[in-house]
Computed example of a mutant assay.
Amino acid sequence: MDYFGDGVDRGLQISYALEEKPLGTAGSVRHAVLDLGEAILVVSGDLLFSIDFGSAINFHRRKGALVTMLLLPYHAEPWGLGIAALDRDGRVLRYLEKPAGPQDIFSRLINTGIYILEPEALTLIPPSTFFDFSRDLFPLLLNKALPFFGYVTEGYWSDLGTLELYRQAHEQVFAGNGGVLIPAGEIAPRVWAEEEIKIAPGAVLRPPLFLGARSCLEEGAAAGPATVIGAGTVLGAGASVVRSILGQDNRIGEKTVLADALLADANIIEKHCCLQEGVVLGGYCQVSAHSTLRRNVKVWPHHHLPSHTFLEGVTLAGEPEG
């Protein structure tokens, strides 16, 4: 909500619906849609894609579908994904969420998490009740033999549902795959920067690299390759950030090294620290000077680590004490 606001500056009108209790993927859509007068397009929020929605909507209308699921041919094992089988007309014959083993794989068409629903489909979702698309609505459509279709798209699609997939998606964007455009100008080959950045003398930029608005590299700092520096983030003198993704308003101290790290917003990493090999920090953490975090350390938000901390392969979860 903070990022998009009401959408006016993007030529949009955006409203938000908040859940007081979890309602599931379908129940939350039913809760959010106030006007049942027209078909809706549902897009899961943890996706990166470049797909022609116009063709999918035309298919949906042409088939007289109640629900259309956008599907994608998938050439790897579809573990953790939904799969569907279609007849020659595109009607869904069978659907399975997350195959348990090779014996369950009857199709290589995966569910993209993007759907077109007619108003009548929304009436099948009970209000104020936990209800899931894959586990509740789709079986209901199949059991009632309602017009449930699958549209096969060839567009670019990537799930962002795990940290590793999130990292891979950044690599794909840097590689220019999928037609996803980086919304910034190039200040050097494959170095993209938004407005009001500050780069001190002696700072080093290694492509591919993205610098968010108002980010700052102090003298001798180095960023990249394969790195995102979020808006307002500051790299102190001599700091080095490699193959890492940093959110907004982080402060990276003097001669601190980050390699293969992922930081959310507003973390403070003091001087002479080393975070490497898959370290993840939630927002608003503080890592005090001369600390080392390595080998997939994960720290939930608001934790404060004292100076000379050494952590390896652990997770600090929950709210910190005090």
Rank of each mutant, 00 (worst) to 15 (best):
I83K: 04
A85R: 14
L86V: 03
D89I: 00
G90D: 08
R91Q: 13
R91P: 05
R94D: 11
Y95A: 09
L96A: 01
L96V: 09
E97G: 00
E97P: 00
K98I: 00
A100N: 11
G101M: 01
G101D: 14
P102L: 11
D104Y: 04
I105G: 07
I105L: 13
I105Q: 04
S107D: 04
I110L: 09
I110S: 05
G113N: 08
G113A: 02
G113H: 11
Y115D: 02
Y115E: 10
L117M: 13
E118T: 11
E118K: 15
P119C: 08
E120A: 15
E120K: 14
A121E: 05
A121F: 04
A121W: 10
L122G: 09
T123R: 14
T123G: 00
L124E: 06
L124A: 08
I125D: 02
I125R: 00
P127Y: 06
P127F: 07
S128T: 00
T129C: 09
T129F: 07
D132I: 02
D132C: 05
S134E: 14
S134G: 11
L137D: 09
L137F: 09
F138I: 12
L142H: 02
N143I: 04
N143Q: 15
K144L: 15
K144F: 11
A145C: 03
L146D: 10
P147A: 11
F148H: 06
F149K: 03
G150V: 11
Y151H: 12
Y151G: 04
Y151F: 15
V152L: 04
V152K: 10
S158H: 14
S158V: 05
S158A: 14
D159S: 15
D159N: 14
D159H: 12
L160M: 07
T162Y: 08
T162P: 02
L163T: 11
E164A: 13
L165W: 03
L165Y: 07
Y166G: 12
R167F: 11
A169C: 09
A169G: 12
A169T: 09
E171A: 14
Q172E: 15
Q172K: 14
F174W: 11
F174P: 04
A175N: 07
A175I: 08
G176M: 10
G176K: 09
G179H: 11
G179V: 09
V180W: 04
V180L: 14
L181D: 10
G185A: 10
A188W: 05
P189Y: 01
V191K: 03
A193N: 10
E195K: 12
E195L: 06
E196N: 14
I199N: 01
A200S: 15
A203M: 04
V204T: 12
R206V: 15
P208Q: 08
L209E: 01
